Amino acid sequence: MTMMQKSLAEFFGTFWLVFGGCGSAVIAAAFPEVGIGLLGVSLAFGLTVVTMAYAIGHISGCHLNPAVTVGLWIGGRFPANEIPMYVTAQVLGAVLASASLYLIASGNADYSLAANGLASNGVGEHSPGGFSMGSGIAIEILLTFFFLMIILGATDSRAPAGFAPLAIGLGLTLIHLISIPVTNTSVNPARSTGPALIEGGIALSQLWIFWVAPIGGAILAGIVYKVVGGSEQK
């Protein structure tokens, strides 16, 4: 695959993740009669990864996440020279998805960007459950670490073939079930950047947290998996 093909795959894949995941929170979960709640939003994020893993995994590897790209590089699975293009495509996909979501949501007279937002991530006063910055940073590092451990393990050449998308998607679902009340769940700097750029304000001022913490957790996982998993890696 050419770099352009890989980048386009990452762009559309990340668009789908942000539009599907954040869209479930902004549009579906916003109406009590729909009733998808925390479980529905968590499942929506997981389903975006499962569906895209089967759709574009053979093209780009279906990273959809700068932290995943960096973690795979640290783990010896991805070339450093392709990181800038992947991350750029992921962020652009997330921003366009957020803008599209805002365009659609604003078609409802009761929707307000200031009041309803776009499912941005946050801590302190911007945390859904009022959790502190320390709690938010800790859970983002920890959950991104385990997300990358799942990815590195499920895609290892010794793992059962064909089941990686399910393991990764279910892993992301579980991660959301745990951490939506804390940070609204990032573990993905691109996913955080899209809504924050459209919302502005506190979401944008706290965006650095959702780059530093997930990438830190991913780097740690890349190092640890080399020790735990050994050298027979795909």
Rank of each mutant, 00 (worst) to 15 (best):
L47D: 00
I139L: 04
G57N: 02
F163S: 12
N121H: 03
I219E: 14
S132T: 12
H58T: 01
L142W: 01
I36N: 06
N188T: 03
E125M: 11
G117T: 10
K6S: 08
G222D: 11
F11N: 02
V49I: 13
N108E: 15
F145M: 10
W73I: 03
A105C: 13
I202M: 10
G57C: 03
A44P: 01
G93S: 08
E199D: 11
V34M: 06
L207Q: 11
S186Q: 09
T14R: 06
L166I: 15
G229W: 06
A97L: 00
P128Y: 04
P128R: 01
A119L: 06
G61I: 03
G222W: 12
T88G: 06
G171P: 07
V18K: 00
G40K: 11
I151V: 15
G122L: 05
V68Q: 00
H58M: 00
Y54D: 02
L113N: 07
H176D: 01
G117R: 03
V95T: 05
V91S: 00
C22N: 13
I209A: 09
L197G: 05
G71L: 04
V95N: 03
A44M: 10
A203L: 06
T2H: 07
I202N: 02
S24T: 11
L148P: 00
L166N: 04
T173E: 07
W211D: 13
L170R: 08
P160S: 14
W73S: 12
L220C: 14
G194C: 02
Y102I: 05
I74T: 12
L152P: 04
G21T: 00
S186I: 07
Y111R: 13
G76E: 09
L38W: 11
E33Y: 12
G117F: 09
S157D: 15
A55R: 01
I175G: 02
